[in-house]
């Protein structure tokens, strides 16, 4: 396994006629949980889509797993990187198990039915997300949290060593959000899978990410180990807020934002 998960060189990307990424350079290491953070519209989701080959940059070069993005055949790339986009859609009538099996696309042969390995991987993915008992439930009958976990099960069933999750805690209450991120860390530690997550909640990023990349207006404002990047100065300047980073008794650190309308 190469040491570099992905590399962007002078990548510029446009979204809806707006520059979303402005000539950025970025190296992402393998084997870590990396969080992309930044204000709305700062380019973090676009960066993730560019790296997964879902959005064509207008300039620059990107490579993943040691090969230029343009050299990858779609199925081969899918076996290397799985990705869950921000608001995925599937028909309401599809069952959870059918959805998870969708993740096996890049592994299945064209004509045969799913192999024993396909079924085993799907079952593992359902178990890891706690969806085994809901396997036959139609997606339309799931709660928001269950639905999100069904999609994560599909992403896991893809069985790729690298997984991108674009705001995986969207629609989830705090308990389910923690559950998903605990799962991410567990898979990272026990199965050595690399994760890149777009996260809105800075405190969740602080708690779960090994590394953080901070985006601001289509550029990278800071990148590095979480502790080094997530300082009150950096966060304050990226988000244009006043904040403190406080350490509680257990040693965990939190960001406290301060209202600007102080008396």
């Amino acid at each position: 396994m190469a040491d570099i998960l992905a590399r962007m060189t002078q990548i510029t990307a446009d979204y809806d006629d707006q520059t979303a990424l402005d000539a950025i350079d970025l190296d992402l290491p393998e084997g870590k949980v990396i969080a992309f953070c930044g204000p709305n519209g700062s380019g973090k989701s676009t960066a993730l889509r560019v790296l997964r080959g879902l959005h064509r940059p207008s300039a620059g070069a990107a490579s993943v797993a040691g090969r230029p993005l343009t050299d990858w055949e779609p199925r081969a790339l899918a076996r290397e990187i799985a990705m869950l986009s921000q608001s995925p859609e599937a028909p309401d009538e599809m069952s959870v198990a059918d959805l998870a099996m969708m993740g096996r696309f890049s592994h299945r042969s064209r004509f045969s039915a799913p192999s024993a390995a396909d079924h085993a991987t799907v079952e593992r993915a359902l178990k890891a997300t706690g969806m085994t008992t809901l396997a036959d439930r139609a997606l339309g009958h799931l709660s928001g949290g269950q639905l999100q976990r069904a999609w994560i099960a599909m992403t896991l069933a893809q069985d790729s060593p690298r997984i991108f999750l674009d705001e995986p805690t969207n629609h989830l209450d705090i308990a389910h959000a923690l559950e998903v991120l605990d799962l991410v860390v567990r898979l990272n530690r026990s199965e050595h899978r690399s994760f890149v997550l777009v996260l809105h909640d800075l405190n969740l990023a602080m708690r779960y990410a090994d590394e953080v990349v901070l985006f601001r207006q289509g550029r990278i404002a800071a990148q590095g180990p979480t502790e080094a990047v997530m300082t009150s100065e950096t966060i304050g300047s990226v988000f244009e807020i006043d904040c403190d980073v406080v350490t509680v008794a257990s040693g965990e650190r939190f960001i406290m934002s301060r209202s600007r309308a102080k008396p």
Binding site: R49, R52, G53, L54, P74, R75, A76, L77, A78, R79, I81, A82, M83, L84, S85, S87, P88, E89, A90, P91, M94, M102, G103, F105, S106, R108, R110, F111, W151, M154, Q158
Partner: peptide, 24 residues
């Protein structure tokens, strides 16, 4: 159509997700 049966199923997903699972 028999050859394209699997890709046809995969199209039930939204385009971004379908692409992420390896479908051109």
């Amino acid at each position: 159509l028999a050859w394209l049966n699997l890709p046809l199923r995969q199209l039930a997903l939204d385009p971004q997700t379908a692409a992420a699972t390896g479908l051109p």
